[in-house]
Design a protein around this nucleic acid. Structure first.
Lengths: 213, 213
DNA sequence: TTTAAATCGGAACTACCGTTCCGGATAATT
DNA sequence: AATTATCCGGAACGGTAGTTCCGATTTAAA
């Protein structure tokens, strides 16, 4: 790890994400009305703020934005991690859905391109997702391993299809491609690059993995 | 900036980097012997630790490693920023030197390749440099603007020479190239990617900016 | 060797952030 | 309307990191 010097804080390694759950509360006492309302307000505030400023924002900023006390926030999400895990998880499943659509594109190359562009777009627009994908103390691989595995599998399908179609070199790995695209998002100062620059970078990457005639 | 929520801390915006200076102390009282020794020990410790763990390491870790009290460290560098600015500055000037060598390579394409590889290698090996180059709260452009400008100019020369030689497409900017390479370093978890993976990514980038026949 | 200025070291101060706690408020039930 | 389980809010706690301060120490000059 190389990265801890001494800390430990109090992270209880809560792998749980689900509070009483806002959907399936038909059994085991339905959530009180105001509680459900607050739960939603917190999720929305977190979604917006994490997207803008990344997962490093102090938790009380989220509470403030949600119009809710800190105590309330902690009632709904026992830990800061639990909160942004919830957010990041929705981003990841969104990406899986995108990948699925792209897999169903009959044109293999087009499918891969579309996915990578959307992936880049998302990562540059949602700072939390970007943070999660490779830095800032989270570590997606460990915490969301199963969802990440699914996503990787989808992307590998996209890549393999393009290789089979003869449009992409066979000697580049899925990890390489994702690293390059993720890296591009990171580039150039805080708040990321603007989308047009980003798409230009993706173009270069696509050209770099293209199979030469 | 999008990134501050409220802080301010106490950063006095010290743009200075030079303490009494360990070299040119012939006039204005030469530094006391032990002081000069400590100054050097601090720089060396910082160099090593920042390279390994990035600029986020607590300052007292550096002091400990230097075998020096915190007070002493602050006597020599009035601020944590001042300390890692000194380190990052040496990295940047090192890169400029590398770029100069590459410019003097008669083979334009080879010059560009060599520089990008070395750039990637450095950024992945010196975590502080990587941190400085685009994230983690520093912002090279502002703080080291002149040195960065020089570096960018050199890289642009390298790029332009390759374009003139017909080996690189004319429609990719210097910023694009650097963003891609820097991004590659960032990729894949803490402590960066291993060097072989990194060089593979650089290869893809090089292929992506190559001029097609 | 004496003396004074320069330097050292680390306890202590300040600020930030995650988390806990509990008296007061609120919603659902009777 | 009264009752109570649930929920709200934010003051307070514990821990980390950067920085300051000052008595003790050391260097170098007299």
């Amino acid at each position: 790890m190389t990265e801890d010097h001494r800390r430990a804080h109090g992270a209880p390694s809560a792998t749980e994400t689900a509070p009483p759950a806002v959907s399936d509360c038909v059994e085991s006492r339905p959530m009180r009305a105001d509680a459900a309302r607050n739960h939603e307000k917190i999720l929305q505030a977190a979604e917006e703020i994490f997207a803008l400023d990344g997962v490093m924002v102090p938790i009380d900023i989220v509470a403030e934005r949600a119009g809710v006390g800190i105590g309330t926030l902690y009632r709904h999400f026992p830990t800061k991690e639990a909160l942004y895990e919830a957010i990041v998880m929705t981003r990841l499943t969104g990406l899986v859905a995108t990948a699925d659509e792209c897999v169903s594109n009959p044109n293999a190359q087009e499918g891969l391109c579309t996915f990578l562009r959307e992936f880049a777009h998302q990562s540059s627009e949602k700072k939390d997702l970007f943070d999660a994908l490779g830095q800032a103390g989270i570590d997606v691989k460990a915490r969301f391993s199963d969802t990440v595995d699914v996503l990787m599998a989808r992307v590998d399908t996209l890549r393999q299809r393009a290789v089979d179609a003869g449009t992409v070199r066979a000697d580049v790995g899925t990890t390489d491609i994702l690293n390059l695209v993720m890296g591009s998002c990171h580039a150039a100062g805080p708040s990321g690059v603007d989308d047009s620059s980003l798409q230009r970078l993706v173009d270069i990457i696509l050209a770099g993995i293209e199979k030469r005639s």
